[in-house]
Design a binder for these strands. Structure first.
Lengths: 248, 248
DNA sequence: TTTAATTTGTTCAAAAATAATCAAATTCAA
DNA sequence: TTGAATTTGATTATTTTTGAACAAATTAAA
């Protein structure tokens, strides 16, 4: 067995086990310990692992925040239906705002092969799209670890510099009386997104329709379309107000 | 059997096995080893396989390291020493710029318990500090996946809105003639950081001292201190220019 | 803290693979 | 067929890889 082959096997083992031990690797690959040590040193020089005493550890790349993943896993089928419909609205060349909602996040998987620009305040979105055809623009400002996103006045100013063809946003509630958010920060950035995009899409699963929580921050005029799996009567009011309703 | 025929068979075998061995191929195709070696070299020149000692591998089997991670694991002890010294300079209440260099990234682990604000264009820094006492501000702008960081005019403008007490930066080279970078984007953002911070620290392992690469983008006046493990004579020039040199 | 065990780097030698050189065999065109 | 060009194989010197031995450094234990 040559170095390249060993290298491959070592990395494979490291990937499954998380950490490895010189002695055991030497035994498994039937090479001497000194050889394995040399291999590990070389791999460490190439940045493929961390060398430890007696072995090596995997370099943990960017970690996906669990909290976010958990929330994102709720109501998956409905969200995916909504996102598929949303993705159909996006075409090559579009400049797209995406906010930090969990539904919007699921949109990522459907747009990886589109030649578009995405401007977002959500780190999970960045993480999801970083190795795709999508060109990314991160909105700057104060970072909130819980939301995994950027908010605040600097973020709003950042958005004001750009003009997008479409914005895909989430809200905490929407009714005939307008749009609702759980915090001022979220309300502000949603307003900023909507103001700077030609067309604004709200991605809402059924739980959001007709819901009025904490802070009313805008009217239905702000948005161009709602994409939802809901069949609520409330949707009729939206249509009356000139909001396009896409039922999935 | 002629070369074209052998070439075909070699590639076929490589495709099924993933890697091949000069001796065995020579035996199977009843040609001498030197002939097979020549074949392999030619195929490698054409980019059809990856030549190894004793054989060859399929191109797609060769592991390509991620650039950021790659650099992060190099010269770890020196970087940690430098970062420990750098962390000593940081005190509660500080506003700190951190750029996207691999040395600066290692500084994270030493400052997690400090009550400071960190303003950064580096996503790995954000990930590292997101569950710490540090309050984070992300610099907005166009995201570069390879560097895992934000650069560009928007980023520079973002920085201009803030004033930091300290900046911890990396460069690709520093000599008595000034500071050197590998790209204009990096040069610009480094300049922006330095301009907006009261004191600028350069974290440089020995490989950077005296090195003059690609683009000279600033003079020694821009920086207040260099923290390094180098013992180069070049450091004397830095002191003469009023740069504080911290040797670790 | 001191001591023992383990791990590591260094040096050297053996083994394997390779490149370089040249001669023999093969191919191809005239 | 002849002869030039190309391909192939053999030989030898060089390079690379590997492993062993031992001193230095690091870690764990007492």
């Amino acid at each position: 067995m040559n170095f390249q082959k060993r290298k491959q096997q070592i990395l494979e083992k490291l990937n499954t086990d998380g950490d490895i031990d010189v002695k055991q690797v030497a035994l498994e690959l039937s090479a001497s310990e000194i050889t394995i040590r040399r291999d590990l040193n070389q791999l460490a020089d190439d940045g493929l692992l961390y060398r430890t005493h007696g072995g090596a550890m995997r370099i943990d790349q960017v970690v996906i925040p669990h909290q976010f993943v958990n929330k994102a896993a709720q109501n998956v089928e409905a969200k995916d239906k909504i996102c598929r419909a949303a993705a159909n609205e996006i075409h090559d060349g579009d400049i797209v705002f995406m906010d930090c909602g969990s539904t919007v996040h699921r949109l990522c998987q459907f747009i990886k092969n589109k030649k578009i620009k995405v401007i977002t305040n959500s780190l999970p979105v960045v993480y999801e799209l970083q190795n795709s055809l999508v060109s990314l623009n991160i909105i700057g400002g104060e970072f909130n670890a819980e939301r995994q996103a950027v908010h605040g006045s600097m973020a709003n100013e950042h958005i004001s510099h750009y003009k997008a063809t479409r914005a895909f946003l989430g809200v905490d509630g929407i009714s005939r009386n307008g749009l609702f958010a759980n915090s001022e920060l979220e309300a502000d950035i949603t307003r900023a997104f909507a103001a700077q995009s030609k067309k604004t899409y709200l991605l809402c699963d059924e739980s959001k329709i007709g819901r009025e929580t904490y802070l009313r921050f805008g009217t239905l005029e702000m948005i161009g379309a709602v994409i939802t799996n809901s069949r609520s009567n409330e949707l009729e009011y939206f249509r009356k107000e000139g909001v396009k309703v896409v039922e999935v």
